[in-house]
């Protein structure tokens, strides 16, 4: 389990991390969300000691993270980092060895991961000869080649085509299924919603929401979708007390209920207005949760 505990970092007047705390459990794909400049990258870099913290600690399995723990972490930074003129397989082998993989295993592991991420045929090319998408796959191979216990990925999905997104998503799910910790940041909220079991949302260096995707999208005020035949504008709903109409879409009215409002009363009002063609509870989208959290 990775714990970020009260992390603080200021750059002059700019607050990058403001007492940030959350926990990444193993065996889950954990999404790390926040608007641009919220402090996601700073927090991820702090896990690897790349940022001098002014307060707080990072712990792994209850112990303060140091060089020996980091050897078992994998990192994919936001600004990709590979030697442009170095042969792809050599580079992955080198990084594997820096993470303590035995010399006899390192080459094989490098070639295996390149193959798995669909760039096996480019193993003997120089990095600079690869497309950006393929460089990104190589970068992911670099983060995973040593079978890390925790992998931290800063925007691993940006710039990938749909096939690449599927490949990377599949790898992240496999890692989590193998009991490893997977922390990744992304702005593609629909993808995050499908891929992650839990998320943490930060804004201006502070945690503003966290929990399982299930909790976050089902929590808060209840939502209903109701469609009454013949009433395309959803005029009936505006007469019902204790509800707010959030959207009307082809006669289907999306309603947000006040705490005290009884759904049965809403159903009764709908039936009184006409023939009810659709009635059901609706989950919030993660993007809505995000917007509310950082508003």
């Amino acid at each position: 389990m990775l714990e970020l505990d009260g992390l603080v970092r200021h750059y002059g007047d700019v607050v990058a991390l403001d007492d940030l705390s959350f926990t990444v459990p193993p065996g889950q794909v954990f999404g790390f969300l926040g608007p641009n400049g919220a402090g996601k990258t700073t927090a991820m870099r702090a896990v690897f000691g790349l940022v001098a913290l002014q307060g707080g600690h990072v712990r792994w399995k209850g112990e303060r993270v140091g060089a020996s723990q980091r050897r078992h972490f994998g990192y994919m930074p936001e600004e990709r980092g590979l030697y442009p003129g170095m042969v792809v397989a050599d580079q992955i082998e080198y990084l594997a060895r820096l993470h303590g993989v035995a010399p006899v295993r390192a080459r094989g592991a490098a070639l295996e991961w390149l193959e798995r991420l669909g760039v096996g045929d480019r193993a003997t090319s120089k990095v600079e000869a690869l497309s950006l998408g393929n460089q990104q796959r190589v970068q992911l191979a670099a983060a995973l080649v040593h079978e890390p216990e925790l992998v931290v990925l800063d925007e691993p999905l940006s710039g990938l085509d749909p096939v690449g997104v599927d490949a990377v998503s599949g790898v992240l799910e496999e890692q989590a299924a193998a009991g490893r910790g997977v922390l990744f940041s992304s702005h593609q909220l629909d993808l995050v919603e499908d891929l992650c079991q839990s998320v943490a949302i930060i804004d201006r260096g502070r945690l503003v929401a966290s929990g399982t995707v299930e909790e976050l999208t089902t929590g808060g005020r209840r939502r209903l979708v109701v469609k009454v035949g013949g009433d395309w504008a959803g005029a009936w709903a505006r007469q019902v007390p204790g509800v707010t109409v959030s959207r009307v879409d082809g006669g289907a009215v999306r309603l947000v209920l006040d705490e005290s409002t009884d759904p049965q009363a809403v159903l009764a009002a709908a039936m009184a207005a006409g023939s009810v063609e659709q009635f059901g509870f609706e989950r919030r989208r993660l993007s809505e949760v995000f917007r509310e959290a950082v508003a």
């Binding site: 870099r45 690897f48 000691g49 790349l50 060089a67 980091r70 050897r71 972490f73 990192y75 930074p77 600004e79 990709r80 980092g81 590979l82 030697y83 442009p84 003129g85 990084l95 820096l98 993470h99 670099a142």
Partner: peptide
Amino acid sequence: EEKSSRVAEVLLST
């Protein structure tokens, strides 16, 4: 080269 290609960040993570 290591600094401008940002590979330093990957290396210094370990």
